[in-house]
């Protein structure tokens, strides 16, 4: 496990992503401590997915620097990709392949030495046994989430990026998924960056929260710190204050 004193797991400096007439990310900088869970919180179009896309190397920044585990994503992406993974409901696994076949393919892509053993482990940890030999396209939404999580954990990533991992799940399945992610983090000391609209999820899972609005970081802190700063009981209220620029958010914005 990486020690807390080691270099940040993810370091973003002056990151900008501008499309023709739209600035999706307007020059943000942050560092994420190894082993922590950090939430990216913001409304639609705040720049969460674009930021995650740039950290993964799927989106090229207009300017700025991203370092993951000490490697520049712009020039050394392939030195670190096998140490990361990603889950999002907006990407899918091949529907016609069974769960086991999908995990076998991704296990090999990530260079796992004992792929079959790893699949068995994941089948136990994520309760995949009953449908591990069923086609991925024929699973329920909850089962698909478990499989997507299994794919994201196949290489025991040191960095796990999650883009709304529990979107469209019922509360029970969502709670189950959060628990599995927490267990993985506790067992492996992984660094997790979580983009979510679910305030309860962020409050429960994150050590640190980055509040994004219109491509800029408007605040940052532990959930308890944010609640105290805005004088609110829930992160949802903090989120609404920031989104609507009211209450303490308006005062803080004015002070800046």
């Amino acid at each position: 496990m990486l020690s807390p004193e080691s270099a940040p797991a993810i370091e973003v400096t002056d990151l900008v992503k501008a499309y023709k007439s739209v600035t999706a990310v307007g020059g943000i900088s942050f560092a994420i401590r190894a082993g922590s869970v950090t939430g990216l919180l913001g409304g639609n179009g705040a720049g969460k997915t674009t930021t995650i896309g740039m950290i993964l190397g799927l989106v090229l920044p207009t300017s700025g620097l991203i370092r993951v585990l000490g490697h520049d994503i712009g020039t050394e992406r392939h030195r670190v990709l096998h140490r990361m993974n990603f889950e999002s409901p907006y990407v899918a696994l091949p529907h016609r392949l069974t769960v086991r076949q999908n995990l076998r393919v991704f296990g090999r892509l990530y260079g796992i030495s004992d792929v079959e053993g790893r699949i068995e482990e994941l089948a136990d940890e994520l309760n995949l046994r009953e449908f591990v030999d069923r086609e991925a396209g024929k699973l329920s939404a909850g089962q698909k989430t478990r499989v997507a999580l299994a794919k994201a954990l196949i290489n025991r990533p040191e960095i796990l990026l999650l883009d709304e991992p529990t979107a469209s799940l019922d509360p029970d399945t969502a709670d189950w998924a959060r628990t599995r992610i927490e267990e993985f983090r506790a067992a492996r000391g992984a660094t997790i960056l979580l983009a979510s609209h679910n305030m309860h999820e962020v409050e429960r899972m994150c050590d640190d929260v980055i509040m994004l609005k219109a491509g800029l970081i408007v605040d940052r802190g532990a959930p308890a710190e944010l609640l105290a700063r805005y004088g609110r009981d829930t992160l949802e209220d903090v989120f609404l204050d920031i989104a609507r620029n009211r209450g303490a958010a308006a005062e803080l914005a004015g002070a800046k």
């Binding site: 190397g57 799927l58 990709l81 990603f86 999002s88 696994l93 091949p94 991704f106 892509l109 990530y110």
Partner: peptide
Amino acid sequence: NMANLLISP
């Protein structure tokens, strides 16, 4: 599945 492939090694 393309995004999964492009973020893999």
